[in-house]
Design a protein around this nucleic acid. Structure first.
Length: 326
DNA sequence: CGTGTTTGACCCGCGC
DNA sequence: GCGCGGGTCAAACACG
């Protein structure tokens, strides 16, 4: 994740050397402590001064331990909040998908034709800030969907946020695609582009890309089939946030990739598929909170984070001119 | 010159 | 059988 637009500082103000206001008691104490340090280190320390210095250091150590404890508690709380929120979002998505599945089935039964038609009316990026969403439809769900030979064809959809003015029907997923057709469909003014996977000569995977009729900011990529080769890149540019339902495949890239792709949200540097700082600022507070919690959770799980945090804290000590000689 | 895209024509399944 | 609409083909074209 790009730290450029996300302030990962927890604002603990472990050592508030730069007070915002004068009436803060800890700040006063800190200034007094700094004064003590100055006295201790400026001349020839007597035994009395050494004792005082020792006392000051002990106090400081206690204070840091307390801050460390607070930090740990905060991280634990953040992780707990994130877990709760994640399970809540999952429940909502499952509920929503079940209801939309029922609607789809009812709609398809009432339609004269087109059991295969992509009904994009229920795209509605379910979680705030979701820039892609995937779903997968097995042929068991739509038995009349495909000819007999494709009865086991796996189909998945990927929703990619894009610029409404961007007319290119391109979804960067790491694979190499060759466009073989484009067609304007009846129920969508935006043309649909047809791609075949050209990474492997005999790869059967096809992809259809079309803008959502409801939301021109959303590109809908429909993948059909499974790649018979490895993914060319370890990290695709398409991002996945959120899951659809337990019986649906999580497939940010392709049906085959779903087997080796973690459902944990991933973030990439592709500006077309990720939220810009402006989008983050404009996002609902709940989503901003979600992002913060996700980052906190990720950071807390990262073993490097603890050492980096410790280094940062110790760095702030050593950065102080009066304490730099330790 | 090789590769990828465009686009009109054609094919095929489905409903009437 | 006919018309509709989605999917595919392939020649022409663009580009590096």
């Amino acid at each position: 994740m790009d730290s450029e637009w996300v302030n990962t500082s927890l604002g603990l103000n472990v050592i508030p050397f730069h007070p915002a206001s004068d009436d803060q008691a800890p700040v006063k104490k800190q200034l007094e402590l700094e004064g003590d340090y100055a006295k201790v280190f400026e001349g020839h320390a007597s035994v009395k001064q050494e004792a005082a210095a020792s006392h000051v250091l002990t106090e400081e150590l206690n204070r840091i331990s307390l801050e460390n404890k607070k930090l740990t508690e905060m991280l634990a709380a953040l992780c707990e909040n994130y877990t709760n929120l994640q399970s809540h979002v999952k429940e909502l998505m499952i509920t929503k998908q079940q209801s939309s599945d029922q609607n789809d089935l009812a709609t398809n039964f009432n339609k004269k034709r087109k059991p295969d038609s992509e009904d994009y009316s229920n795209i509605g990026l379910t979680s705030p800030g979701t820039n892609t969403e995937t779903s997968s439809i097995s042929d068991e769900e739509y038995p009349c969907k495909r000819p007999k030979e494709n009865i086991n064809l796996k189909i998945s959809r990927v929703y990619v946020r894009t610029e409404a003015s961007d007319t290119r029907l391109i979804v960067k997923d790491g694979y190499q695609w060759r466009k073989y057709g484009q067609k304007v469909t009846r129920d969508n003014p935006s043309p649909r582009a047809y791609y075949k996977c050209s990474f492997a000569p005999n790869c059967p995977v096809k992809k259809k890309v079309q803008k959502s009729a409801e939301n021109p900011c959303v590109l809908v990529a429909t993948y059909e089939g499974e790649h018979n080769h490895m993914h060319p890149e370890t990290r695709a540019e398409v991002t996945l946030i959120g899951s659809i339902s337990p019986n649906q495949q999580l497939s940010p890239l392709s049906p085959s990739m779903a087997k080796r792709t973690s459902p944990v949200p991933t973030f990439s540097s592709d500006k077309n598929n990720n939220l810009s700082p402006r989008e983050i600022e404009g996002a609902p507070p709940a989503f901003q909170q979600f992002l913060v919690q996700h980052m906190a959770s990720s950071l807390s799980k990262d073993p490097n984070f603890a050492s980096a945090l410790a280094a940062a804290i110790s760095g702030r000590f050593s950065d102080q001119p009066r304490m730099g000689n330790w």
